[in-house]
Design a protein around this nucleic acid. Structure first.
Lengths: 332, 332
DNA sequence: GTGAAAGCGCTAACAG
DNA sequence: CTGTTAGCGCTTTCAC
């Protein structure tokens, strides 16, 4: 393994000069630069980032903890974050928490041990007690993504309440009164906020929330399928369904289809979260789509800002969703 | 920031003892261990992984370069790899090459600089000339994933030829003779091998390959949609279509739908790659599904083995696909 | 069972 | 414009 010292010797300069030509951190005479570059080329030298990080105190690495890499939504999120970060010269370490604080803690501890310059976390339920304090103690820049918490740090999440409310109101406008909702995993803001939007829409029209029409899908496709199936097979089947995230949508659609029911004929359907292939479903799904790219890019920018020590109060950013009016709601 | 030295001082021992209790690398008297642990707890000490890596020469980090984080297929792959790796105490740095060797080179160089203990790469076209030599030169353990190359290293990829052949033969068995194929991005083995399977099936029945029926989708949904649309709107429209990966499938279905054609009524359809929601499409897709979990887990195991210096000749593993016979082919 | 000391390969004052 | 010199915080012989 060739080190900076080897290169320096070969070029007849000091290691510090080699370091400076490599990093452009100080003026170097053109001729010596050439000699150094020649030596680098000759030896095939490649700097040791670990030593570099130790000496410099920065790793140019950021960590990302999310809850389900298999969910296309998070895949896009990782993609957006990765791009913004790599453009800035950082690399991304990803960890999948499976929405469990224990795994989340293991992941973030490991990231902290590795001295990441910052981290982005989609907090699992209970995160504010279990894992965030530990991160805060180290002073590592942190931005929360996808779910908001009552803590003092940068956060970026989609607009939830208003979007869910619009979705529900649309159904109400079409005359539906028995509207069921399929909720995501409990304990996180997205679930709560979206549910709030649903409740607000109903309440606003003087309709009470019927507990029997609230199905807990737990953000598991299988659970949602089972529960929705049970509901739709029961006597008090709703006339419309609103699904609160893409996993819930898949489960719901499977349930409906397995019962031989048709959408929107037998039951109207709208959902939070859009799919790239929404218009290939039959019928096309009326949905509130998140702007995942913006969410990811924004989170990365906020983090980069903190890493650069550009201070300021914590910011909480809501990214608007886009309403896609298609046909599963029963319109047109 | 508290260091190991601080802990040692507080516990009244040497830094080396602290290191040993932390790592379990040598026998430590129970009583001193207790004192050390108390000191650690008291200071909230957390070891510096960077210093650790520099001293030990291992980072417990592996890099992964893939071509499209937004593709659900790769999302699952990352997930599988991440799980296997984190179980073994490693973290994963991901980079998205967008199937371009230039980005791939930047990513792998950055990973190498960071002294990853190993890396997994889904090679872009041209990788063997551009990026793999550089990796080989460092001696960093490497396993290729998703696409195979004619190079000496561990590789794991799905079964392509036979699966594509089966798909095509199924169409042939149903009486189709004008079968179009939608190919993925050129220059990688999956595209070539799957196409070979298509050709073999036709040839075997004495049917020549009609160049007009070979559409280049370039692994871009948009391109596939445009090209398939053109083909299906033309005079010599095929009676059946075989799509070679999930992005091509989305594009193809969009094209078919936009023309108001029906599957399998107007054109039969089969595809390589399965979707979690395959049976929500209308009609349900007959597909050859990859076992992504196995591919990812296998790659991780092979890599771990190399990292542990368990030698042996390079292994090339083919993971079988699963044939899902549904209705888009026109059966039943 | 424990400590001292020599690095790991680089960065960044500090001096010239 | 360039070299010298301390470290960065840990692991790991080697010695006791």
């Amino acid at each position: 393994m060739t080190t900076m010292g080897d290169v320096a010797r070969l070029a007849g300069v000091s290691a510090s000069t080699v370091s400076h030509v490599l990093n452009g951190t100080r003026k170097v005479d053109a001729s010596t630069r050439v000699r150094v570059e020649a030596a680098i080329a000759e030896t095939g030298y490649r700097r040791n980032g670990v030593a570099r990080s130790l000496a410099a105190g920065r790793t140019h690495t950021v960590g990302l903890s999310i809850s389900a890499l298999t969910n296309p939504y998070f895949g896009s999120l990782v993609h957006a974050v990765e791009r913004a970060l790599s453009d800035a010269g950082y690399v991304l370490i990803v960890g999948d928490s499976h929405d469990a604080v224990e795994s989340e803690k293991r992941i973030t501890d490991s990231l902290l041990d590795r001295q990441v310059d910052g981290m982005i976390v989609a907090p699992a339920a209970g995160s504010e007690r279990s894992t965030l304090p530990g991160i805060a103690r180290t002073g590592t820049p942190l931005v929360l993504i996808d779910r908001m918490l009552d803590v003092d740090c940068d956060q970026v999440a989609p607009e939830n309440t208003t979007s869910a409310r619009m979705l529900t109101e649309h159904l109400l406008d079409l005359g539906h009164r028995r509207i069921a909702v399929v909720r995501g995993i409990p304990g996180i803001s997205s679930t709560t906020e979206r549910f709030d939007g649903y409740v607000a829409a109903l309440t606003d029209r003087g309709i009470g929330v019927d507990a029997a029409l609230v199905v807990e899908g737990e953000s598991s496709t299988d659970v949602a399928e089972r529960e929705v199936r049970a509901l739709m097979a029961s006597a008090n089947r709703p006339t419309a369904l609103v699904s609160m995230n893409n996993a819930m949508t898949i489960g719901t659609l499977k349930a409906v289809r397995s019962l031989g029911l048709s959408i929107p004929g037998d039951v109207a359907f709208v959902c939070y979260d859009d799919f790239e292939w929404s218009d290939l479903f039959d019928p096309k799904l009326t949905a509130a789509g998140q702007d995942v790219e913006t969410i990811g890019a924004t989170a990365a920018q906020l983090l980069l800002r903190r890493i650069r020590k550009e201070d300021g109060p914590p910011r909480r950013i809501r990214v608007p969703t886009m309403f896609h009016h298609r046909s599963s709601c029963g319109c047109r």
